[in-house]
């Protein structure tokens, strides 16, 4: 390939790599990709951080990042995992939150660390329904089909829906 790509170009390419479990978000929007460093010989080191300790998608994401950049013609790609700072849904930008809602997943509220370990009342209210936008919703379970989602229910359109967990 001609010349070495800029960091911005590499990040733009990585914005094409979607999360395998939430395919409307890219790994950049999700905040999994923390940085990309391009060296003079074209070697790229991508720094990633896991969403959850046991997220089974992490290995798939790393392979997808490597494949994407190798297909773009980069000679060598290294994916490095860091744990600090710990991943938070607060990194997901507003534009990506809108995409989540349009896809049928309520976006996360702010990641609030509650003082009480077993609080009487949750600091975050329930999200509006991504289908009918009603505020009359309830949390059915903090756990859903993947580690990153909770299960909610809408009292107006009477549909279950998923919410991206705020952590």
């Amino acid at each position: 390939m001609a010349g070495v790509p800029t960091r911005e170009l590499v990040l733009a390419w990585l914005d094409e790599v979607k999360d395998p479990e939430v395919p409307v978000l890219s790994v950049v929007e999700l905040g999994v990709v923390r940085d990309a460093v391009v060296s003079a010989d074209g070697t790229v080191t991508v720094t990633v951080t896991p969403t959850y300790s046991g997220c089974p998608a992490m290995r798939v994401i790393e392979e997808a990042i490597r494949d994407e950049l190798l297909l773009r013609g980069l000679p060598r790609v290294t994916v490095r995992t860091v744990f600090t700072p710990a991943w938070t849904t607060d990194w997901i930008p507003e534009s990506a939150r809108a995409k989540l809602e349009a896809y049928g997943i309520a976006p996360p509220g702010r990641a609030i660390v509650e003082e009480a370990l077993v609080p009487l009342r949750r600091a975050n209210g329930t999200p509006r329904c991504p289908y009918c936008k009603s505020a009359r919703t309830e949390l059915r379970s903090e756990f859903g089909s993947t580690a990153c989602k909770s299960l909610c229910w809408c009292a107006d359109c009477r549909q279950p829906f998923e919410m991206f967990k705020a952590i």
Binding site: Y52, T84, L117, F143, K165, I167
Partner: peptide, 16 residues
């Protein structure tokens, strides 16, 4: 690093 990540998870485990 592992602890900071696990802390977030253990907090919702305890809530549950």
């Amino acid at each position: 690093g592992i602890a900071a990540k696990a802390l977030k998870e253990s907090r919702y485990h305890v809530r549950h």
